[in-house]
Design a binder for these strands. Sequence first.
DNA 1: AATGAATGAGACTTCATTCAT
DNA 2: CATGAATGAAGTCTCATTCAT
Lengths: 215, 215, 215, 215
Amino acid sequence: MTTPSQKAIAERSVETATKNTDLVRGRRDQIVKAAIRVFAAQGFHETTVRDIGREAQLTQGTLYNYVRSKEDILFLVCDRIVTEYLERVRAAAAIEGDAKERLEAAVKGVVRVMCAHRDSILLLYHESHNLEPKSLRVILGRVDEFIVSFETLLKEAGVATAQGPARLRLLANIVTFLPTMVALRKWALPEALQEEETVDEIAAFILRGLEAASN
Amino acid sequence: MTTPSQKAIAERSVETATKNTDLVRGRRDQIVKAAIRVFAAQGFHETTVRDIGREAQLTQGTLYNYVRSKEDILFLVCDRIVTEYLERVRAAAAIEGDAKERLEAAVKGVVRVMCAHRDSILLLYHESHNLEPKSLRVILGRVDEFIVSFETLLKEAGVATAQGPARLRLLANIVTFLPTMVALRKWALPEALQEEETVDEIAAFILRGLEAASN
Amino acid sequence: MTTPSQKAIAERSVETATKNTDLVRGRRDQIVKAAIRVFAAQGFHETTVRDIGREAQLTQGTLYNYVRSKEDILFLVCDRIVTEYLERVRAAAAIEGDAKERLEAAVKGVVRVMCAHRDSILLLYHESHNLEPKSLRVILGRVDEFIVSFETLLKEAGVATAQGPARLRLLANIVTFLPTMVALRKWALPEALQEEETVDEIAAFILRGLEAASN
Amino acid sequence: MTTPSQKAIAERSVETATKNTDLVRGRRDQIVKAAIRVFAAQGFHETTVRDIGREAQLTQGTLYNYVRSKEDILFLVCDRIVTEYLERVRAAAAIEGDAKERLEAAVKGVVRVMCAHRDSILLLYHESHNLEPKSLRVILGRVDEFIVSFETLLKEAGVATAQGPARLRLLANIVTFLPTMVALRKWALPEALQEEETVDEIAAFILRGLEAASN
DNA sequence: AATGAATGAGACTTCATTCAT
DNA sequence: CATGAATGAAGTCTCATTCAT
C-alpha cells in the first residue's frame, strides 16, 4: 500500500542513496517540515540548502543522502502541501447526506481548510513555479484530481447539468480557486471579521453562485 | 501632471545616473518591456541581468544607467503591470448609466481585462513576492486602491449596504480576486470554451453572488 | 588562554563557516601569509581575491570558508603584522637591568625590529587606511598599547618626569614613530651604510633627544 | 620660465587635448583642488572620477580634456602637495642669519608647515603608492630635492661634518621625516598640548639630536 | 570646448553539490 | 550512514574611459 505522496515520488522518482525505507521516510519528513518553515519565512531562492539543513538538524552531506537536489526538496514540499490539503478537504466532505448536503459540506470544507493552512497555500502559489516542468506537472496533476472530484460532486448535486462538461469544469475551478483568496489576499481582507465569518461568507458566495447556476 | 507610474517611482524613488528625462522614460520603457518578456518566459531568478539587457538591446552597463539594481527592474515591471491593469479596468467601467449598470460593466471589465493580460497577471503573482518589503508595499498599495474603487461601486449599487464595511470589503475582494483565476488556473480551464464564454460565465457567477448579497 | 591575535578576532569577530578550530587557524595562516606577499607586491586594491587564493593554494570558494570578505583578509593581515611586531619588540626589551638600560634596549630593539620587517611595516602604513573604521580602530588600538608601553618605560627611566603626561606621550610617539623611517624612507636612505650602522645611528639620535629631555 | 609643477608635468608629460594654456592651467587647478578634497575625504580608490568631476563642477567629458586618466589626477595632486610643501618650507627657512640660525629656522619651519598641512601630507603618504612607478619616481625625486637641501643646510651648519656624507644624509632624512609624525600619528598625539607646543617640542627634539651629533 | 550617454571588462561573493574520511 | 570541507560556476554591479553630438 502506497500513500499518495509515495506515488508522486514514484512518478517522479526522487531517488536516494539509502535503502532503509523507514529511515528515509523519517528523514524526509524532517526535511520537508523544516523546508516548509524556512521557505515560508524566506522564500525558496533566499533559502540555502544549509538553512534547510540547520532547521532540520541535519548536515548538508546527510541531507543529500535523502534528496538529490534543492529542487527535489521543493517538490517534496509542494507535494506534501497539496496532498495534505486534499486529504483534509476529503475528510471534511465525507459526511452522510444527499448530494446537495455533501456539496455544501465540501465547499465549506475547502474554505475552512484553506483558511487553516493559509501559509502553506501561499508558499505553494509563490514557489511551485520554480519546479522543473516535470515536477510541476505532477503537482498540477494532483490539483487536477481535486478539481475533478468537485466536478463529480457538482454533477451529483445536479448543478449546471444541462450546460455541458466545459461549463461544469469552469464551475469546479471557481469553487476550488476562490477559497485560495484567504491565502493570496490575506493582506487585504477585513480584519474586523472573525475567521469563521469570513469562511461562511465566502462559502455562501460560492453556493449562491452555484445554486443560481442550477436552473 | 504626473502619471500614476511616476508617482510610484517617486514614492520609491528609483534614481538614475542620467538626467535627460525623455531618454530615461524611453530607456526604461525598453527595459520594462524586455523584462516582462523574459521574466514571463523564465522567471525572475532564472533571468540574468544580461538576459534583460540582450532582450532590451542594451548593454549591461547602459542598463545600469537607468536602474539601480535587478530588484529595481522587478519593481518597475510590477508597477507597470498593475498600473496598466488598473487603467484598463477603469476605462472599461467608465460608462454612462445607473450604478447597477456601471457595476456590471466594471465586473465584466475586470474579467475581460484579466483575460487579455493573463501572462502579465501571472507574472505579477509569481514574482512580486521577490520584491523588497518596501517595494512590495507600494505595489500592494496600488492593488488596494483597486479594491477600494470596487467597494465604492458596490456601495453605490446598493450591494450589501446593510451588513457593514467589513462585509463590503470582503465582497470587493472577491470581485477583484476571482477573475485572476483565468491567469492562475489557465492550465485547468476548459479549452472547449471560447474566451468570451469563459469571461461571461465568470462575470455572471460574480454578479449572481452579489445580487443575492443585496437582499 | 588566548593569543593577542585571537583577541583581535574576538573583538572584531571574523566569523567562519568552518568549525574545526585547528583547521581554521591553519588555513587562515596560509591566507594571511599569502596575502602579505601579494599585498606587498601589488597593493591591496590591485590584488584580486583570486590572486590571494592562488598564492595560498586555495580556491576562491575555499578561501571564503575562512574569511568573509576581502576586507577581512586585510584586517587579518594588519593584525598579524602589528601583533608580531609588538611581540618582537617586547622580547627585545625584556632584559635584566635598571630602567635606563631597559629603555636603551627597547629603543634599539624598536629600530632593529623595524629594520628587519621593513616590508610589512610599509604594507601596514600603505594599506591600513583601507580598513573599515571599526577594523582600523582595533589596529590603532594595538599600536596605542605599544605607545603606552613606551610611556611607561620612559617614566621608569625618569625621562621628562617633570613636564607632565602630555609631553611624555609626545616623546613616546617620537620614539615609536621615528624608527618607521627605515620602512617609509627606505628609498632615500644612504646605501653606503651597513644596516647595523643605520640602526645604531637612529637609536643614538633618539636616545640623545631623550637624554637631554630628562633635565 | 617654468614653475616646478610644470617641470614635473613636462618630465612625465601629462598631455591634454586642449591647446589654450591659460584655460588648461585654470581647469587643472579646479581639478586638483577638488581632487585633494575628495581624496582626503574618501581615499583614492573609493573616489570615482565622477566624484571628482562633481566637486570640480566639471562633467566627466570635460575633465578628460584636461587629464588623461584617473592616475594623472593623482599625480597632479601629489605633485601639487609636495611642491607647495617645499615652497613653504623654503620660505620659512629664508631668513637672514648665520648657518646655525638658518638651520634652526628651517627645522622649525618644517614642523610648522607639516602641522599646517597635516591632511595633505596624510593624503600623500596614503595614496602616492598608487601611482605608476614612473610617476612615483617623479614625486620621490621632488622629496629627494628636499632632503638634499637639508643636507646642505646641515653641512653649512657644521653638523656631523666629520662622519661622511652617508651619515649626513641619514640625519637629513631624520630631520625631514620626523615632522611627518604630526600627520601620520595625528590620532595618537596628546590633545592636551597646544599645536604650538607640539611643534616646539618636536623641533627641539630634532635640534638636540643634531647638536649632539656635531661633536 | 563641453557634454553625458554608452561601453564592457572585471571584481567580489554565494551556494548547490560532491566526496574523502 | 554521517560529516563538513572543498569546489567552481555564475551572478550582480561598478566605473574608468570613449565618442558622437
